[in-house]
């Protein structure tokens, strides 16, 4: 560094420790603020208006929310979201089970692991199409199988009582794969000496799993729960591809219902859609704050 620099440069020099992070943060933070942070507030505001994307926005106050409480479709969506959340959680133990099954060192096991994982890599659109084909009335594989066993096929996606479960099953497929890979990585890092010590104490099977392995898998399980909750609440793609919310709205979830109200052919109630989004956001916030709280605590502990 030459000493013949302008005073300007040396001012920069003195302050670069403070300024560098600001400059480095600025572009990313700006983009994030414009595309993620500001829209959240904007949606909150919009949810208080009646707006069809064409005319003027009309102030409604809380009327959109009052309407939500009486809206049968909203209740169905909310109920289905709860079903999604509960059943999606099956991915966590199911993923663990497959991980344990695959955590061996026989020949070719790496290929098996990749192939078991690979549903997760496929787009949900494709997963939805695959399962729609699997369930299809009259010629779908599942329909045929059931017909072979019971004599009468079941068209899962035509039955208002079954359709949601059919879609969740499709969603679980990649989700289990995701949880599996988290657990496999976790299992790889379980301290071998602790296992040996426990073995000497006579622990094995489920007991070993419960008292020795699971506590060590806690970080993997935490992430698995987080991604599964988010996945369950984001269940838009499969519903849209497989049923469009039907038959007669029985498979709607909040994320889909919001889109339907705000932007679909029969929709354009953007204010009402925004109100649905706010409710969904509220539900997500319950989980987010829990996750963040735990992460902040870990962060503090690490420092």
């Amino acid at each position: 560094m030459a000493t013949t620099e302008t005073p300007n440069r040396s001012w920069w020099h003195r302050n670069q420790q403070t300024l560098t992070p600001l400059l480095f943060l600025a572009p990313g933070l700006l983009m994030f603020a414009v595309y993620v942070v500001w829209p959240i507030f904007s949606s909150f505001r919009l949810s208080l208006y009646d707006y069809d994307g064409l005319g003027r926005k009309v102030w409604l106050g809380l009327a959109n929310y009052r309407e939500l409480f009486a809206d049968r479709a909203f209740k169905t969506s909310l109920k289905n979201n709860v079903i999604w959340l509960v059943l999606y959680m099956l991915a966590v133990p199911a993923g663990l089970a497959i991980a344990i099954f695959l955590n061996q060192t026989v020949r070719g096991i790496r290929i098996y692991k990749s192939l078991f994982f690979f549903p997760f890599v496929i787009s949900q659109v494709v997963v939805g199409l695959m399962f729609a084909w699997f369930y299809a009335p009259n010629f779908g594989l599942l329909y045929k199988l059931i017909e072979m066993v019971t004599g009468k096929g079941i068209a899962v996606l035509a039955d208002p009582h079954l359709a949601t479960y059919g879609i969740i099953a499709a969603g679980l497929w990649p989700q289990i794969a995701y949880c599996m890979i988290l657990d496999l990585t976790g299992l790889n890092n379980v301290a071998p000496d602790q296992i040996e010590a426990a073995r000497l104490d006579g622990a094995k099977g489920l007991k070993m799993l419960w008292y020795v392995i699971l506590p060590q898998l806690r970080p993997a399980t935490f992430i698995a729960v987080v991604v599964t909750v988010i996945g369950a609440l984001r269940s838009f793609d499969l519903v849209s591809i497989m049923t469009n919310g039907g038959p007669f709205g029985s498979t709607r979830v909040l994320s889909y219902y919001m889109y339907e109200q705000a932007l679909s052919e029969y929709g354009y109630r953007m204010g009402y859609g925004a109100a649905i989004a706010v409710v969904l956001f509220g539900i997500m916030m319950i989980f987010i704050s829990g996750f963040i709280w735990k992460m902040v605590r870990d962060e503090r502990g690490a420092r």
Binding site: Y135, A136, P137, L157, A158, T243, G246, P247, F248
Partner: peptide, 13 residues
């Protein structure tokens, strides 16, 4: 009157 005679799985096709 015709409801019972409509294709059964119409909602999924």
């Amino acid at each position: 009157k015709v409801q019972p005679y409509i294709t059964a799985n119409h909602a999924a096709i």
